[in-house]
Design a protein around this nucleic acid. Structure first.
Lengths: 99, 99
DNA sequence: CGTGTAAGGAATTCTGACACG
DNA sequence: CGTGTAAGGAATTCTGACACG
């Protein structure tokens, strides 16, 4: 499941370059809980390629005039749906084991 | 062909963490032409996940007492073989187009 | 609300060199 | 040859704040 796309290894400078967003914006979207980079011991942020993709989605939605809290709600909704899907998968698997 | 694995986005500090190698070693293997990171405008090195994997291979071979120039020759050999394979693929493709 | 910017400091990285073996 | 280390400087990142709208 976790692969290179999820490894938090990219600095904010590279993310800025990859997405075209300013560092200010990237930090702000974190403040608004849209992304969740990790930190090194020293405190510098590290992002994954998934974060980069997410930021590009965010950029699109911001351009469409959406507000950060709306975007956040969408992401949360999406995550719930993914989790439910996985849960159902597990339940089915167990069910199949029984019979 | 080029994917996330080939994107040069990782700093030497992260590479050191991921591979367990010291930064000194990582820079030295570059000096010996075993790896080829890119540079930012500012001059800091950026590595790809492929570089990270390559470094782990290098570490293994160094442990086995191999010398850097040997390891380098191996890599070059491997690259030639890959290129040849691709070339043959292209030739076959063209040949198949003709008939 | 979303974003720019100047400010001061801290973490990160760089190079060239000396050392050892 | 391969690697550690101290040295000085440059690039990168961080936070909190003020500004505008």
């Amino acid at each position: 499941m976790a692969s290179y796309k999820d490894k938090k290894v990219i600095t904010i400078g590279m993310v800025s370059e990859l997405t075209g967003l300013t560092e200010r914006k990237i930090r702000y979207y974190e403040e608004r809980k849209l992304i969740h980079p990790e930190r090194t011991k020293g405190g510098t942020r590290r992002y994954s390629f998934n974060d980069v993709e997410k930021l590009m989605t965010i950029a699109d939605q911001m351009e469409d005039g959406m507000q950060t809290f709306e975007i956040r709600k969408r992401f949360e909704k999406e995550e719930r749906s993914v989790r439910n899907k996985m849960l159902r998968g597990q339940i089915n698997a167990q069910f199949n084991m029984r019979k």
